[in-house]
Simulated assay, not measured.
Amino acid sequence: MKQQSGFTLIELIAVIVILGIIAAVAVPRFVDLSAAAEEAAVEGVAGSLASASSLNYAASVAADAGLANAPTPTNVTDCNEVGPLLEGGLPANYFIPSAAVGDGATVQCTVGFDDNGAVDANKPTATFTAYGVQ
């Protein structure tokens, strides 16, 4: 009599049950990462806006000091005027609510993500510092 090799039906069912339990525990952790991704993206855009505003202000200080070859600063009198400082402008579906920024002043501005382009309490927002340049 020849001995057969392979798995029994019980062993196969046990493996399928174990894989099902692992999938039931692990899949929900990875399925809904879109909210975390939106938050991280908004934080990244806010960091870029803060850097762009800082560089623009530094260009203004350099120009006011009369430094040769100083870059030309862009006027910023409102928070939403910081968006165009980014190369390519503010990404699609992001918005910056209007808030006045005085010359040489700093203001905490908000940037948010929303398909409608309006403030939505269910969508992530982040703050950045805008420097006024006139």
Rank of each mutant, 00 (worst) to 15 (best):
Gln4Tyr: 10
Gln4Asp: 14
Gly6His: 06
Thr8His: 13
Leu9Lys: 13
Leu9Gly: 11
Glu11Lys: 03
Leu12Pro: 02
Ile13Pro: 08
Ile13Cys: 02
Ile13Leu: 14
Ala14Ile: 10
Ala14Lys: 06
Val15Ala: 15
Val15Trp: 11
Ile16Gln: 11
Ile16Trp: 03
Ile16Val: 04
Val17Phe: 12
Val17Tyr: 06
Ile18Cys: 10
Leu19Gly: 06
Leu19Thr: 14
Gly20Met: 08
Ile21Val: 14
Ile21Met: 13
Ile22Asp: 10
Ile22His: 05
Val25Thr: 14
Val25Leu: 05
Pro28Phe: 15
Pro28Ala: 12
Arg29Ile: 00
Phe30Arg: 00
Asp32Cys: 02
Asp32Lys: 04
Ala35Trp: 11
Ala36Arg: 01
Glu38Val: 02
Ala40Trp: 03
Ala41Tyr: 00
Ala41Met: 12
Val42Gly: 02
Val42Leu: 09
Glu43Trp: 00
Glu43Val: 02
Ala46Ser: 12
Gly47Gln: 03
Ser48Tyr: 13
Ser48Pro: 09
Ser48Lys: 10
Leu49Gly: 00
Ala50Val: 03
Ser53Lys: 04
Ser54Lys: 15
Ser54Asp: 04
Asn56Thr: 04
Tyr57Arg: 06
Ser60Glu: 11
Ser60Met: 10
Val61Leu: 12
Ala63Ser: 13
Ala65Asn: 08
Leu67Lys: 14
Ala68Asn: 15
Ala70Gly: 08
Pro71Glu: 11
Pro71Gly: 09
Thr74Lys: 11
Asn75Ile: 08
Asn75Pro: 15
Asn75Cys: 05
Val76Pro: 00
Asp78Cys: 03
Cys79His: 12
Cys79Lys: 05
Cys79Ala: 05
Asn80Asp: 11
Glu81Ile: 11
Glu81Trp: 03
Val82Tyr: 00
Val82Thr: 01
Gly83Gln: 01
Pro84Trp: 00
Leu85Cys: 07
Leu85Val: 07
Glu87Arg: 08
Gly88Thr: 12
Leu90Ala: 00
Leu90Gly: 01
Pro91Glu: 01
Pro91Asp: 02
Ala92Cys: 04
Asn93Leu: 06
Asn93Trp: 04
Asn93Glu: 14
Tyr94Ala: 03
Tyr94Arg: 01
Phe95Cys: 04
Ile96Trp: 15
Ile96Phe: 12
Ser98Val: 14
Ser98Lys: 08
Ala99Asn: 09
Ala99Asp: 14
Ala99Val: 14
Ala99Lys: 11
Ala100Thr: 10
Val101Gly: 04
Gly102Glu: 12
Gly102Ala: 12
Asp103Thr: 07
Gly104Tyr: 12
Gly104Trp: 13
Gly104Glu: 11
Gly104Leu: 08
Gly104Pro: 05
Ala105Ser: 15
Thr106Gly: 05
Thr110Tyr: 08
Thr110His: 06
Val111Arg: 02
Val111Ile: 03
Phe113Cys: 07
Asp114Ala: 09
Gly117Pro: 15
Ala118Ser: 10
Val119Asp: 04
Val119Leu: 15
Asp120Gly: 08
Ala121Asp: 09
Lys123Cys: 10
Lys123Asn: 13
Thr125Gly: 10
Ala126Glu: 00
Thr127Arg: 06
Thr129Ala: 06
Thr129Cys: 10
Ala130Glu: 01
Tyr131Leu: 04
Gly132Met: 11
Gly132Arg: 10
Gly132Tyr: 13
Val133Trp: 09
Gln134Gly: 07
